[in-house]
Computed example of a mutant assay.
Amino acid sequence: MRHSYYDFFAGGGMAGIGLGDAWTCLFANENDPQKAESYRANHHGGRELLLRDVAAVTRDDLPGSPDLVWASFPCQDLSLAGNGAGLAGKRSGMFKPFWQLMRALHADGRGPKIIALENVYGAITSNGGRDFATLAAAFSGLGYRFGAMVVDAVHFLPQSRPRFFMIGIRGDLAVPPGLTGDGPCALWHPPALVEGCNLLSRTAASRWRWWNLPTPPARNTTLASLIENKPTGVAWHSKAETRYLLDMMSDHNRKKVDAASQAGERVIGTIYRRTRTGPDGIRRQRAEVRFDQIAGCLRTPAGGSSRQTIMVVSGKTIRSRLLSTREAALLMGLPESYVLPERYNAAYKLAGDGVAVPVVRHLSQTLFEPVLHRNRLALVA
């Protein structure tokens, strides 16, 4: 039995790739022409994709009655690095017209069986937790039993990428035993999320559920296994450029490089440039390196500081270059066959704005599909 879904703020369609072949996309929405082009290139032409601002989408644009609605709505105003506007901001505020469409579907008798929101970790604490409470009130207002989790892509991929997921099950559907717990689980429910529940209204709190997903199997990929020997689209830095990066490091980070040099083997690390305040009170740009076989969280290439750099250390030989776009795609769990934009910044932005494919697959296999299967069996019975 195939399942159906809508994909809002679809980007390059990574959520659909994560859901897999058992799912059919009835409708997808994106307002970025470059991302829409990538979606179509990787989804058999993407005839289901509507290139339009979500605020201009109407219920008449939405076909059928979906099993799942997935929405990775814009994160900029909720991000810890953002401007603090939260759900009142211009970009993250796109949640409001999206949810109006969810209300319209319910008014039509086509309410989605499952709604899944994905965003940055900062969605939990944005606006003092009030934005989190607003999201909860939205689910509660439509009668969904819902809960939230933080899932880090590092469980599946060599990338540190914690993301917030709020998932609701329509109130008339049964939730299979074992999918909820009596309380929070440390793996999925960090203290900030537990604390955020204190802001829920009495009604929302009564519909809250602690989703209890299985622990993912041990990750079997390392950063080194995804790094291209002959990268495409990027060039190795000159010795002077690599020296410049080394000179930007604090003593703590230089010691990491020195230790890698003495390891007696090829060691691969990643670097982000960050602005830090020194002991003298002066803010300087620093190069911070990690050699733990985990990449830092991919971001959009708004500037040089947000583009991740690879450092390869072999004894006294130290080389550096930007992360290639194919490596960025692999760090999101995309297959080698995924067609990337030709321009570096467009491809990097596509990856940095996306959702990690195996995280979606885990949610689908352990939560979405069991719920749908249980309720279809109930209809047959």
Results as ranks from 00 to 15, higher is better:
89 G>N: 04
377 L>A: 13
127 N>M: 07
311 M>Q: 02
265 E>C: 11
189 H>N: 06
129 G>P: 07
42 N>G: 08
12 G>Q: 05
212 N>I: 00
276 R>H: 09
350 L>K: 06
247 D>L: 12
230 K>N: 15
13 G>R: 05
103 R>H: 11
208 W>Y: 13
220 N>T: 13
317 T>L: 12
193 L>Y: 03
132 F>Q: 02
357 V>P: 05
250 S>K: 07
278 G>Y: 12
358 P>R: 04
286 R>S: 14
26 L>Q: 13
336 E>F: 09
103 R>V: 08
62 L>C: 07
344 Y>I: 07
133 A>I: 02
74 P>R: 09
16 G>L: 04
17 I>A: 10
266 R>P: 01
146 F>P: 00
16 G>T: 09
312 V>M: 13
138 A>N: 05
35 K>I: 00
369 E>C: 00
247 D>N: 14
112 P>D: 03
324 S>E: 08
30 E>T: 07
164 F>V: 04
21 D>G: 09
381 A>L: 10
54 V>L: 15
172 D>A: 06
74 P>M: 05
143 G>Q: 06
113 K>F: 00
305 S>N: 10
174 A>P: 01
123 A>T: 14
316 K>H: 15
37 E>T: 13
161 R>C: 09
320 S>H: 03
7 D>C: 05
201 S>E: 13
4 S>N: 14
349 K>N: 15
318 I>F: 06
338 Y>Q: 03
77 D>M: 04
37 E>N: 09
247 D>K: 13
22 A>D: 10
344 Y>G: 07
222 T>S: 15
20 G>I: 00
127 N>G: 02
257 V>G: 02
231 P>G: 06
50 L>D: 03
147 G>L: 07
114 I>T: 01
365 Q>I: 00
141 G>R: 05
116 A>V: 09
371 V>I: 13
229 N>P: 02
297 C>F: 12
343 R>I: 14
260 A>M: 08
312 V>A: 14
182 D>L: 12
236 W>T: 15
248 M>H: 10
57 V>Y: 09
4 S>H: 15
341 P>E: 11
262 Q>W: 05
314 S>G: 01
140 S>V: 01
176 P>I: 03
245 L>H: 09
133 A>H: 02
279 P>F: 15
228 E>F: 03
135 L>D: 01
169 I>K: 00
143 G>K: 07
20 G>W: 01
137 A>T: 11
35 K>W: 12
47 R>D: 15
372 L>N: 02
169 I>F: 10
117 L>W: 02
95 F>H: 02
12 G>T: 08
221 T>V: 15
182 D>F: 01
309 T>W: 14
287 A>D: 04
251 D>H: 14
291 F>G: 03
89 G>Y: 02
7 D>T: 04
302 A>K: 14
128 G>E: 12
53 D>G: 12
27 F>L: 06
81 A>N: 09
21 D>N: 10
376 R>Q: 15
51 L>E: 14
330 L>K: 15
52 R>Q: 12
153 A>W: 03
297 C>E: 06
240 A>K: 11
204 A>R: 06
60 D>K: 13
5 Y>G: 00
94 M>H: 10
363 L>S: 02
6 Y>H: 08
336 E>H: 10
198 N>W: 08
213 L>C: 08
113 K>L: 10
363 L>T: 00
358 P>L: 05
256 K>A: 11
149 M>K: 07
232 T>K: 13
243 R>Q: 12
250 S>W: 11
171 G>S: 05
126 S>W: 01
86 G>R: 01
179 L>K: 03
301 P>R: 05
